[in-house]
Each structure stands twice: as structure tokens, then as C-alpha cells.
Nucleic acid binder design. Structure first.
Lengths: 235, 235
DNA sequence: CCACAAATCTTGTCACTGTCAAGATATACC
DNA sequence: GGTATATCTTGACAGTGACAAGATTTGTGG
């Protein structure tokens, strides 16, 4: 007799994969990284402890999809914030800092997951795609500053991107790891205004002396993949 | 018969606490965070799996001391680098960036441990002391830049400290988590030159418009402590 | 319409983890 | 020199991710 009523725990969940991702994010938000176990996620989704193995090759597989989901929300917040902000270059840099800090403070566990390479499979196409999409915002935001400073080459522009990114990321990371504020200081509400600083320098007609880098090649990663047996074949 | 020969595994280790710290750092360097278990550390130190409990209340206790040790080496590297560098403000800011990035790349696991609040007991006096000592370098390094920009108040000076710290920390963190370099770009050798940028702006006679913050109060922590029973009483 | 293959989920098990309890051994102090 | 105390070991426990094998449902070809 096939199950027609959904409320009576059918043997097959329906869309367990999606449910596990949502359960994982919920567990992460509620009990934090330490309590995020495959068994807790399975339990929350109402399935047995081994069920996740049929949808994710390993814990890393689930974490990778969760991080992809987190990146998607971050990118959406960034796009939304930019759209609602004056297109002025300095304002755009500021809003990126604000969105970065707000996201990190609102979802510190997701933020840590997004930037913990060892827990994720960075060969994953979807994760790479959303990360690339997010970086494109940075490229757009940094471009006017780079131009104003006379940063013509791709390398010089990349350096401006790294600078703006480092300020926002470093400040947000130090904030959620309780390094900022320093003892006795008030809790800051905004990321340092690197945009104002860049354009203050640029208006002086100063050439692009933001940074100096030196060659070397890019590296690649290597991680596990594929679920169990000949069964489901995603991550 | 008391043991006089050291080589024959005496029942009492002699200085197990120190040995466990060194073993812990060695395991961390060799097999990484995932392989850093109390049992692996105990095994490496040549003692049973429960021996560490007599010197550290929990795994967090050992990690806290390991992080303290890591901070001490970082502070030493920073002090050494500064001493060997031109006292010029811009040079001092640059050397801090270089030391920061070099330490993070040479000891990424220790770097992550130092900045993972949830794994450490930040009420620990020794950890707080060495962190404070390290921060003092930042205060000294940032002071000339703050002065040059007309940052008179304590808050304004702190903002300059945060800016310089954020650039170094953010860049180093993004680098060890494989976010920098972006795909296809060369591996950078230096942190963005925020010092040059700060003084380029300052020379223009620009007032301190580095950042804007807004009040709020500081928060505190709460963690476990004390080893087992009435035995050893450290961490 | 129905057998059979594939997909989905469960139960059971394994080695490993941190922590605790209790006992064994060496040291120190009176 | 004997006894309290510090130090370390053995043993056990619940909880973990992963694997194996079986149960249930779905889907598809004949």
C-alpha cells in the first residue's frame, strides 16, 4: 500500500537532501559548530543516522553544500545592499564593509564555515560558482578606486581588490573571534573606511602604490568526493 | 628502587606538562587540526591516554596553552622583525604585515588556533598577557600614522590600529584559507601597503577620517577550567 | 499489470574520541 | 621510615563518522 498521507512518516522522505541542508544550517545556528554532527542533522530531519550518507559522500560533502548556501545568502545581501546604496565609489566600498560585518555578526558560524578551507571541497562547481560571483562584486567595487589611483594593470587592480577585501574580512573575522574590540574599547559598528582613504590618496594625484607583489604560481586542491556505493552521485 | 636512568621509561615523566605542550604543537604541525587528539598527543609524549587530564582540565586547556606558546613565538618574531627594520613608520607597518603573513603561512594551524575563540579559554591570564603584549606592538606601530592623520582621541587612534590590523590579519587569513590569490592570479608575497597609503593621505594634510564607530559596551566570556579532582590545579 | 532493478532509508557494527572512575606507583614531607 | 600526595595507568562510557547489509518504496520494461 503506497503512502498517500505525508504526515505519517513515509519511508521515503521526498526531498531529504534539501531537508538535510536546512537541518544542518539550523543545527549550526542553534548549537554551533561543536554540535553540528551528521547524527544531529539526521535526527533533526527525522531520518536515521546513516541516511545522510546516501546524499552526501561524507560530512565534508554536506558542509560544502551548506557553505554554498551561506555564500548565496551573503551574495544576495551584498547585491541588495549595493543596489540600495548610492553608486558613488566610496559609498559602494562602505556598504560592502557593512554587509560583510553584519553577515559575520549575524551568522558567525556560517561565516567561519565559508572561510575554513579544510572543511570544504573547493573543487565543487557550485561552491566555486557562487564564490566567483561574490568576488565579481568586489571587482566592480574596487575598479573605480583602482582607476582613480592609476592602477592600470590587472595585477595592480587585483591588489586594490585584495586591500579592500582584507580590511572587511580581517575586521569581521577579528570581531567575531573577540579580538576586536580590544579590552576596554567600545564595540565598533563599522569597518574602517578604506574607501575614503583610497580616494583621499587618489585625489592627491598619487600613482598606484597600493602594494607590491611578486610572481609564483597558483596551487590546486584535492579532496574526497562521491557518495557511497553506486547509489546517489552528488558530492 | 628509584629510577635513576631516564631512558627506561620512569613511571613519572618528570615534566609531562611541558612535554605535552610540545607534543601537541608537533602533532598540530605534522597532521593538522583534524589529527590533533588528546590521545595522539599523549601517545607522542609516551604516556597513557588519560595522563593529560592530570595537567589540563580538558582539551581546551591544552589548546589554550598551545595558543599561548604560539602567540609568544609570533610576538618574538614581530619584535625581532621590528628591531631589524628601519624605525620609519611606513617601514614598521610594512614589517608587521610581512611578519604576520610569514607566520600565518609557516604555521597555518597555529595561526588558526590563535584566532579561534571557541577553542580557547580567553580568561586565561597568560594568554591574555601575551596577547596584550602583542597588541602593544600594534599600538606603537600605528601611533605615528594616527598622529600624522590628526587622530588625537583614543578612539581615533584605536581605529587606525584596527585598520592596520585588519589589513594584515584579513590578508593572511584569506591567504591560508586559499581565497587569495583569486583563481589565475599569482601568489602575492606581501600584504597590501596600508602604511604607504596612510601616509600618502596624511601628507596631504587630511584630517583623521579613517573610520567612524559608535559606542556600545564590551562583552565577557565564560568557559570551563580546573583539571580533575583535587589534583593538579592548572587550567 | 507485474516482475524486477534501482533508489532510498534503516539497523547494526566498527574504530576512534574526550571524559570520568578507580587503582597502581613514585615522590615528598614529617 | 612511614604515610599523605602527586603522578600515571587501566578500564569503562556515551557519542562520533563511516561502512555493511538488509528492508522498503519507486520506477520501468516487458
Amino acid at each position: 500500500m503506497p503512502n498517500l498521507r505525508v504526515a505519517e512518516k513515509p519511508y521515503h522522505h521526498g526531498n531529504l537532501r534539501k531537508a538535510l541542508i536546512e537541518a544542518g544550517l539550523a543545527v549550526l545556528e542553534e548549537v554551533g559548530h561543536a554540535g553540528l554532527t551528521l547524527r544531529a542533522v539526521a535526527s533533526r530531519a527525522g531520518v536515521s543516522h546513516a541516511a545522510p550518507a546516501h546524499h552526501f559522500a561524507s560530512a565534508k560533502g554536506l558542509l560544502t553544500v551548506m557553505a554554498t548556501s551561506a555564500f548565496a545568502r551573503f551574495e544576495a545581501a551584498l547585491a541588495d545592499g549595493r543596489a540600495k546604496t548610492d553608486p558613488d565609489p566610496v559609498s559602494q566600498i562602505r556598504v560592502m564593509g557593512r554587509v560583510y560585518l553584519e553577515f559575520a555578526r549575524a551568522h558567525p558560524e556560517q561565516f567561519r564555515l565559508m572561510f575554513t578551507a579544510a572543511k570544504l571541497d573547493w573543487r565543487d562547481a557550485e561552491l566555486l560558482a557562487i564564490a566567483r560571483m561574490t568576488y565579481r562584486h568586489l571587482e566592480e567595487i574596487a575598479r573605480p578606486a583602482a582607476d582613480a589611483m592609476g592602477a592600470n594593470s590587472a595585477t595592480a587592480r587585483t591588489n586594490v581588490e585584495y586591500l579592500i577585501w582584507s580590511v572587511a574580512h580581517g575586521f569581521a573575522h577579528l570581531a567575531i573571534e573577540h579580538q576586536i574590540p580590544k579590552p576596554g574599547a567600545p564595540v565598533p559598528t563599522d569597518v574602517p573606511d578604506i574607501g575614503g582613504l583610497l580616494f583621499a590618496t587618489a585625489h592627491r594625484g598619487q600613482a598606484g602604490r597600493v602594494k607590491r607583489t611578486k610572481a609564483a604560481t597558483v596551487t590546486a586542491g584535492k579532496r574526497n568526493l562521491k557518495p557511497r556505493k553506486s547509489k546517489a552521485e552528488r558530492r
